[in-house]
Structure formats: structure tokens, C-alpha cells
Computed example of a mutant assay.
Amino acid sequence: MVDRANKPSAIAPSPGLPQPRVNLSDDNSRVTATLPTGESVEILLHGATVISWKSGGVENLWLSEKAVLDGSKPVRGGIPVVFPVFGGPPANHATSTLPSHGFARNSRWEYLGKSTSESGALSKGGDDCVKLDFGLYTATLSEEAKKAWPYDFGLVYSVTLGKDGLQTMLNVRNEGKVAFEFQMLLHSYFRVKDVSKVAVKGLTGVTYIDKVLNAQIATESNPAVRITGETDRVYQSIPQDTTSIVEADQPRYDVVRDNLEDSVVWNPWKEKAASIGDFEPKNGYINMICVEVGSVKGWQKLDGGETFEGGQIIRSSP
């Protein structure tokens, strides 16, 4: 149903050139990739959660000091994968008995392997990108999750590390004959020095749901969204592809949506952070902001054999 034009393709490594290094940890819990130029990414197989992405020697993602990395609960920080429902499941829906944000972020994924690329959105020629693929399927789900969401599906999550950015793409396939509906979101926690000096641009004129104000619907009238207290807004049907995070008037991140129209802007602020058990340090809200790309306004429907793919490209300016 969807042919991704920018999806990196596997090629044979160029002989004689330094190659990206990819390592699977001894305990089979995580995969790390490093480019010859120093950029790196680390993905936990629990949830296929990206827990580190460094460029220019700088960590770009915020990870709680109390993030649970042993597979017993979702990770607080990094880039958790939300599927097949965003937030609390609605009543009288096929997802209604699932936990908040679904099961993908709390399931163990399979590492499918790596490929290098001379083409694609992040490549500039030569072996300057490495793509890591992770899979989650009906057969590998917990019995509890299968019972709560009894559909035949396949997910392939591709994390591509390039010299100038990180691409994360989720491919969803209906492997059965019965149609299903889903939502998906990439819950990116970006590291910043001081969130009070951060502005999120590219959302002017966009309708949003303000979850802090009892789900009131409003239209963004400001040229930049600034964080002055607890913020939890779902921006819908964003016409621009790029949302930019600026800190102290300097570019920090560009978040480019690929085949996705919605974004969540979230920061718990002081009181909410204090109430979250695995959020540490408690003043860590100062050093993070979430800009989360997804398809959450309504539901994506896939008939048997159909596929959907969407994701993001993140470019950083350390």
C-alpha cells in the first residue's frame, strides 16, 4: 500500500573504507552502532527503544537516571515506540483492554540485522549510514497482549544512523485477513540545557488538544511554543513537514515527519515530574522536551495484506 521512496537500501560495503561498527551486547539486550566519524546510536531490544544517540560527541536524547532497562517496564526516556494505541485506550474499541500506549514499548523485539547505505535521506554517498532493523510479530507477543489485541500483524522498525541525523521508521503490516485499526507514535525525549530557553517552531495555526486543560481544543497562535509549566498538547494535521526545536535562539533539532501528520509536545514540569516514580532527577524536566511524531488524530485502518509506514528524520545542531 505504501512504497517508501527514501527507505535506505542494502548494498555491499565499499572495500578499503572504514565501516560502521555494529555490536550486539553479550547479554543480547541491546545493539550499538558507531560510524567511523564518531556518531553512535544504542537500541534496547526491550521495546526497540533508542536509548542513546550521539553526534559531535554530544548526547541528543534524555534518559531518566531511574529508567528501567531490564525489560520489566517501558523505558522512561530515549525514543519509545507507541503502538497500537496512543494514551489510554478508548472504551468500546478493539484496543480497550490494552495498557496505555499499547504493547510495543513493553515487548521484546527481534534484531533483524544491519545494512549500510549509499542512498537514502541521510546518505551523502559512501558507507556513511548504517541501518538497523528490528521486528515484532504476533507470534512473539506475550499471551496477555495476544488476548487483548488478537490480530495477525508484523512490525519492522528501522533505525538509520547517519553523519547528519537519525532516521526512525515504523512499518506496519496486516498479516491476516481481518482488518484492524491502530495508532502509532515515536515518543522522542530530546536533551536540552534549559527548557525555559527552548522554543518549538513550525506549529503556528495548527489545531491542538490541550490535555492539561481537560482536552480543550485550541489553535496555536504563537510563532513559537514555549514551556512555562506542565505542557501536554497533541497537534493535529500539521501542514509543514518540519518542527524545529530552538534553544537560546540557536537551532538545536529539526524533526521532519515522514508520512505522519501529528505531533505531541510534552514536558511534565516540576509537580508532574515529582509524581513520576522513574523520572530522575526530579528536576530533569529542565533538561528535556518531548516532540513526538505520530498518527494519533484518528485511526489508521489496514485490510489484510496492506502495509503502512511512517516515521521521522531528526537532525541535530550540537
Score class of each variant (00 low, 15 high):
P80C: 02
L112N: 10
P223E: 09
S123A: 01
T116G: 11
P8L: 05
V41W: 00
I43T: 09
L112S: 13
Q240H: 12
F308I: 12
I43E: 02
G277H: 14
G310P: 08
S275R: 11
G304H: 10
V246C: 03
L45Q: 05
Y208L: 08
H187I: 08
S237Y: 12
G126A: 01
Y137R: 11
K147M: 09
K147S: 11
E65A: 12
T140V: 10
A67E: 04
L166A: 06
K7T: 12
D164L: 14
Y285L: 07
P281A: 05
G125A: 06
Y285K: 08
T49P: 07
T242L: 07
I238L: 11
L17C: 13
G77L: 08
G229P: 01
G202K: 02
Q216F: 15
P281N: 07
G298P: 11
E110A: 14
W109S: 00
E306K: 13
R105A: 02
S25N: 04
Q236H: 12
V31R: 01
N267L: 03
D70H: 07
S295M: 13
R30M: 11
E247L: 00
G284Q: 03
N106T: 14
Q167L: 10
V212L: 07
S64E: 04
V192Y: 00
G38K: 01
N267V: 06
T243S: 13
P18W: 01
N214H: 13
C129F: 00
A94N: 15
L122Q: 04
G120Q: 02
M169C: 05
S119W: 09
E175P: 05
G277Y: 10
L24S: 02
D164H: 15
G310T: 09
L260Y: 10
V156E: 09
V2M: 15
G154H: 03
Q19P: 05
I227R: 01
P74C: 09
S123D: 01
P99N: 09
S52V: 07
R257L: 04
G284F: 02
T219I: 15
S142C: 05
W149C: 04
I51E: 04
Y157G: 03
R191T: 11
T231K: 09
I217P: 08
P223V: 02
Y189V: 05
V246I: 10
W109C: 00
N28Y: 08
A145D: 13
A199V: 12
S9P: 13
S64G: 02
L136I: 00
N267E: 03
N259Y: 06
N6R: 13
D70Q: 09
